[in-house]
């Protein structure tokens, strides 16, 4: 049931554009989300797994600023998987959910820090349209270069220089059609981070044990997607019952 959404979106983009011209390409539909402060709902508790041997990681040599960035090589997009196959850093999200718990729950205010020539965190989630806070802790030039992924294209969202430590910028995460933001630093090409944006707060990042939990979900049946920076997206179905914890597992296949 692995779905390569990027491929299907690309196919839609290219055939759509060829057949209909640009006028037919859909604009971002701003999804309405209604907050229900009192909702108790049910809980989804899941495990993300990787089957098959992880691919050989791509390494990039640290080529400059060794005093702050260190020596040797770095894997920009690490596959963090436990010995028994549990995969970290995957984003699990429910699809097509238009009402439920408030977004104000902790952990949904996006912030990214550049420290020792790495982005922290590597993967996070954010509300579409939220304001991202960007902080440089290193006494050297970083540029935070954010791209919206649309099909196979990368669309620059912004590119801001932070040449000194302590500098803070803020930028609204205005998405056109995509969900995923890739963040690079052109000055240090091994730096990589990802932000998964959603219309609703039923979204979470798998921890180092591959575990993810989403609470206060309105009862019902949902499609659930899981996305990972290296493995793309997969999907499945889940059911949520009021006052209960339902378990699920997601498997990425190599």
């Amino acid at each position: 049931m692995t779905i390569n959404r990027y491929l299907s979106r690309r196919t839609m983009l290219s055939t759509g554009a060829a057949a209909l011209g640009v006028a037919a390409l859909p604009r971002l539909a701003v999804a309405d989300y209604t907050e229900q402060p009192d909702i108790a709902g049910g809980v989804l508790k899941g495990k993300v797994m990787l089957s098959g041997a992880p691919p050989k990681p791509e390494e990039i040599l640290i080529s400059k600023d060794h005093g702050h960035c260190g020596e040797g090589a770095i894997v920009p997009d690490p596959v963090r998987v436990t010995a028994d196959g549990y995969l970290a850093d995957a984003v699990v999200a429910l699809k097509d959910i238009s009402q439920g718990k408030p977004w104000s729950d902790p952990g949904t205010v996006p912030k990214i820090v550049q420290a020792r020539c790495k982005f922290e965190p590597y993967v996070q989630v954010a509300r579409k349209g939220a304001e991202l806070t960007i902080l440089n802790e290193d006494p050297l030039l970083h540029n935070i270069h954010a791209y919206e992924l649309i099909g196979r294209a990368r669309r620059t969202m912004f590119n801001i220089a932070q040449p000194q430590a302590g500098q803070v910028d803020k930028h609204v995460l205005k998405m056109r059609r995509g969900d995923v933001i890739e963040i690079d630093c052109d000055a240090h090409n091994w730096m990589s981070a990802w932000i998964y944006t959603a219309d609703h707060p039923y979204v979470g990042v798998a921890d180092s044990k591959g575990e993810v939990s989403i609470d206060r979900i309105p009862p019902g049946s949902y499609e659930l997607t899981a996305w990972h920076p290296v493995f793309g997206e997969t999907a499945g179905d889940v059911a949520v019952k009021a006052g209960e914890t339902s378990e699920f597992s997601v498997q990425f296949k190599v």
Partner: peptide
């Protein structure tokens, strides 16, 4: 201060240390 030399080089010749690894949006 803005470390323009990181890409454009100390002499402005476009040969700074990061110039070797630059990629465009595609």
């Amino acid at each position: 201060r803005l470390q323009c030399a990181s890409c454009h080089g100390a002499d402005g010749m476009g040969d700074g240390p990061s110039s070797l690894t630059l990629k465009d949006d595609q």
